[in-house]
Design a binder for these strands. Structure first.
Lengths: 131, 131
DNA sequence: AGTGTCCGATTACAGGCGTAAACTGTTTGC
DNA sequence: GCAAACAGTTTACGCCTGTAATCGGACACT
């Protein structure tokens, strides 16, 4: 599922607080982004049409629920980003992001732990090709 | 400078081997991507028009040279990626990428060193930003 | 019951993108 | 010198995007 910029904004909101009604989305995004009602409605409709959202009719209103997992979309977008900007090579991408990002100490610690984990698992079982 | 997918492909090639003539780009990208000559020409033209490339006429041919720094485009694309997918928060982006990326031991080491550097510089010049 | 209101659906429209053919002018081989 | 090759410019076209107005049906209030 490829999402456009604007669609990401909508989906991020819905992933955070699904199921959601259109009015909530309209309120939130109108305030945050200055989109008109009509624009948000269009977004919702397109997302339903492309299968990223489902609607269930509760009484007379509809509730919107994500039909695609956020993690899957994130994975896809990340790969696409690394592919296009770094030619598919994740390491320079990471280096770049670390260099430019503002990271809290907690973030740094967490990242280091993750790297340690990766290094260890590599050392112990370095024949598992399970990705 | 915002580059589209296809434009990234062209620009990455040119950054790697500038200055370049159209024929080289056509040859490389025709082979790699199966693009027709016409398509590559269009890309080059559009990139010139949007200011990402410059042409200098050497004799009768033109040579294409990047007019924007790769690093600047990378920075912009990275920010845009983090913004759209992770709501501007770099830390989850990094965690995700580290989790899913295949990283060599060299990559891992390099990353850890970079993290250490960041942590140290933060500790030494910490002036109580409490956020 | 009529009218305003809310909400989803349909329609609109300009600009970007991927893809490419056609046109034009120059160079070069025959 | 003329035709083929080459290179840059113009034009084309359908789809996606961002942005939005308008339509149409159901409810709600007067």
């Amino acid at each position: 599922m490829q999402l456009s910029d604007a669609e990401w904004i909508v989906m991020n909101l819905i992933w955070d607080s699904q199921p959601t009604e259109a009015s909530d989305v309209i309120a939130a995004l109108g305030a945050d982004n200055g989109w008109s009602d009509a624009t948000v409605k269009t977004m919702l409709h397109r997302l339903v049409k492309k299968g990223a959202l489902t609607t269930e009719q509760i009484g007379k209103k509809y509730r919107y629920t994500a039909a695609v997992r956020q993690s899957a979309c994130v994975r896809k977008a990340s790969r696409s980003f690394v592919d296009r900007v770094f030619g598919g090579d994740a390491a320079p991408a990471l280096l770049h992001l670390v260099k430019t990002a503002k990271l809290s100490e907690v973030d740094l610690t967490e990242l280091r732990e993750l790297l340690d984990t990766k290094a260890n698992s590599r050392n112990s079982k370095n024949k598992g090709s399970k990705e």
